[in-house]
């Protein structure tokens, strides 16, 4: 067995210009998907705590389905399955964004639900007793406090979703991992290339963590 492996720094460095082309796709899929996911999360998170069962049940069904099935299955379903239904192809980028949106939306719904439910009942009683409507009470009293508590779990979800985009190499979207696979196919330098790919993910997620920590600190300073 040949264990004379030597990490080839030159091969690693050479791969960077090609791999870096995957970053815009990784960012576009993750942040595009997360933005839609955040909107879905607010809508379905709030519906899931509505008193009316016909609003609550569909929201709960959505959350359970997309939390309870693998995101890989979801993206394969959207990319290969859905075209049969809508009678036309879906481009891989759209499919990727849709998968992140629907998947993160389910998790963010739970974050929203937890955040809102964590606010003391006395807060809404105070708002209502001052004459504010339920809607006013929610948006000017409950939501700002809930949102602040949601920042850490939202950051967590963003990091999970960024990493989830790596699975979308299976539908041929040119994100980081896909770029790596294509590069390795001609150079056979798997170790070096995946090492660089990993570093690139880490650079993205660490930057995000840093930003979130600053946001959190600013948010907490005003309470």
């Amino acid at each position: 067995m040949d264990s004379q492996f030597q990490f080839d720094w030159q091969a690693a460095i050479d791969s960077i210009p090609f791999l870096i082309k995957g970053i815009p796709y990784t960012l576009m899929i993750s942040f595009g998907g997360l933005m839609i996911g955040f909107a879905l999360g607010i809508i379905f998170g709030l519906l899931s705590i509505n008193k009316k069962w016909f609003l609550r049940w569909p929201a709960t069904a959505y959350i359970e389905i997309f939390r309870g099935t693998p995101i890989l299955v979801q993206v394969l379903f959207i990319f290969y399955g859905l075209p049969d239904l809508i009678g036309g192809p879906i481009d891989p980028l759209t499919a990727g964004i849709a998968a992140i949106a629907l998947n993160s939306g389910a998790y963010i719904s739970e974050v929203v639900r937890g955040g809102v439910q964590s606010i003391d009942k006395g807060q809404s009683e105070a708002g209502l007793s001052l004459g504010l409507s339920r809607t006013q009470t929610f948006w000017s009293i409950i939501w700002p406090q809930a949102f602040r508590r949601m920042i850490p779990p939202l950051g967590n979800q963003a990091i999970v979703s960024i990493k989830d985009t790596s699975l979308f190499s299976v539908i041929g979207v040119g994100e980081l991992v896909r770029q790596g696979q294509v590069y390795i196919a001609s150079t056979f330098t798997a170790f070096e290339v995946y090492f660089v790919v990993a570093i690139m993910y880490l650079a993205i997620t660490l930057s995000l963590s840093l930003i979130l920590r600053l946001v959190e600190r600013r948010g907490l300073a005003s309470v």
Partner: peptide, 15 residues
Amino acid sequence: KEVGMVFQQFNLFPH
């Protein structure tokens, strides 16, 4: 709108 209330736990808005 016509009736004010003061609570045991104050319930001020912390934000």
